[in-house]
């Protein structure tokens, strides 16, 4: 079932178009990676999906039961000041804000949900710790947990592994993979193309002149993707291609 359908979308600020004519579809259970060079408008696209940038033309259609404020969002590098006093629990709970209007207290159901989600991403022990004292990998898991509190249907991550060391990055990726297998639909903007290719079912490449959307397999064999072809690609068509290249030489 399609969860999100973007058709001929153009976005920009103050009359200046930054991304134009984008189309892609995300089905339930997909893992879509959005990749592309700096300055091609990936972050603008994310803001557009969240409804923070008004669209010039085109359409963003969300399936029933999902709204723009119900997308679990993990933003690009959190700008939290270094000594912000906030406990992990306080931050996780703030993920529920889209579903309540006002009030000092969260409901019992929300508290139970948060406890379960904290267990799920492995931060139960950190519950009462101060956010700013945690390591980068732990902080990202806390913010992921907050995004999951907003919804467990569709989460949108904007370069979630920037600034993480390789171990923390791979831990974060495997957590994402597991969540995806459990049914969470993931859209991730990433600089890390190899990581993105390993994890995702679909790729949206946003280039300066051309863009591409398709399954990861299609991407690897497309014109834009073939430059970053993984070595030793097991599929038949690649072997075939290699042979052709050799023969031509």
């Amino acid at each position: 079932m399609s969860l999100l359908k973007v058709q001929n979308l153009s976005l920009g600020y103050e009359g200046k178009v930054i991304v134009s004519d984008i189309s892609f579809t995300v089905n339930e259970g997909d893992f879509l990676s959005i990749i592309g060079e700096n300055g091609t408008g990936k972050t603008t696209l994310v803001k557009g999906l969240l409804g923070l940038v008004s669209k010039h033309s085109g359409e963003i259609r969300l399936s029933e039961g999902v709204s723009q404020s119900h997308i679990g969002y993990l933003g690009q590098k959190n700008l939290v000041s270094k000594d912000f006093p906030a406990s992990v629990y306080e931050i996780v709970m703030s993920g529920f804000l889209n579903s309540k209007r006002f009030g000092l207290f969260y409901t019992k159901k929300q508290k139970q949900e948060a406890t379960a989600l904290m267990e799920r991403v492995g931060i139960t022990k950190l519950r009462n710790r101060t956010f700013s004292e945690l390591s980068g990998g732990q902080q990202q898991r806390v913010l992921l947990c907050r995004a999951l509190c907003a919804t467990t249907k569709l989460i949108l991550l904007d370069e979630p592994t920037t600034g993480l060391d390789p171990i923390a990055t791979s831990e974060f990726y495997s957590l994402l993979s597991e969540l995806n297998k459990e049914g969470v639909t993931v859209i991730m903007v990433s600089h890390d193309v190899t990581g993105a290719i390993k994890m995702s079912s679909h790729i949206f490449y946003l280039g300066k002149t051309e863009s591409f959307f398709g399954s990861t397999h299609q991407y690897l064999h497309s014109n834009v993707g073939k430059d970053i072809m993984l070595q030793g690609c097991p599929c038949d068509s690649c072997a075939h291609k290699e042979k052709e290249v050799k023969q031509n030489a």
Binding site: L50, L52, S69, I71, Y73, G75, Q76, N78, L79, V80, F84, A86, E90, I91, M93, S94, G95, L97, N98, K100, F102, G103, L104, Y106, L143, R146, A150
Partner: peptide, 16 residues
């Protein structure tokens, strides 16, 4: 709760 969210992370607050 909203004041906390806006103070802590304006980007996330706006997204929700």
């Amino acid at each position: 709760n909203k004041i906390f969210a806006v103070t802590f992370d304006e980007g996330f607050a706006r997204a929700t």
